[in-house]
Design a protein around this nucleic acid. Sequence first.
DNA 1: CCTCCATGTTTACTGATGTAATCATTGAAC
DNA 2: GTTCAATGATTACATCAGTAAACATGGAGG
Lengths: 124, 124
Amino acid sequence: MLKKIADSELEVMRILWRGGRPLSFAEIKTAIESKTDWKKSTIQTLLGRLRDKGIICTHNHYVTLYSPNVSEEEYVKNEGQNFIDKLFDGNAMKLVTALCRNGQLDENDVDELKAFFTMGGESK
Amino acid sequence: MLKKIADSELEVMRILWRGGRPLSFAEIKTAIESKTDWKKSTIQTLLGRLRDKGIICTHNHYVTLYSPNVSEEEYVKNEGQNFIDKLFDGNAMKLVTALCRNGQLDENDVDELKAFFTMGGESK
DNA sequence: CCTCCATGTTTACTGATGTAATCATTGAAC
DNA sequence: GTTCAATGATTACATCAGTAAACATGGAGG
């Protein structure tokens, strides 16, 4: 049961996921500093917590390299399910109809989805 | 900007929302005890915090009555948006396509949505 | 009146999160 | 070798969330 990833930790995970390969602290630091003004010790703390939770692991290569143990897809799927469970009784359709009702999704979007299915695959 | 409703607080809110009218502590307590084993002091704490956050208010009637300041719809819409912002760059379609990809939504569901639109209204 | 019960208020404690300073180490540069 | 900069580890501290005991109070019953 996938431990919870806190918001600030998520920022770090994004870097790792987007990196697509094990990253060094320096790389992570640079990437994070381009979007937050966290001190390095903060980043270190987050990496430590993520490792404690088993969400990332470290390889001792030459420098330490950090890589995710869970993929972004897994994470997103998991969070999505939790969210749906929490607010929509686990029923994804309820979520979607709520989106429609709130105008966060319109008929064109639905058409697009339809297309996605009828051509059985990756639209994007 | 709607203060955050914690998970346990949400349980209380559900009672209030479902109640459809201002409820007394006794009513809330009974309702909550049917689904959790929280002590009454716990329920009081949650009510207190919700009131501090301005999410509910109390009327002094004869006994104190509690009622929500935010509707469930508002709340759900808000949380939904936050969720989409956090995990899908604010793009609801990305969420929905993810649901499809994960099989949490299938072609039939999409058809249903289509119907929802073409007949312009409340399907369910 | 005195007592008890339901309710309201205050205080408490643990763990998680956001944020970081500080200390320790280790390889790189002189 | 000695020093320094980068990195890793330890400690810190405030706030929030989950859960609750304890204490105060105002009526209901006797």
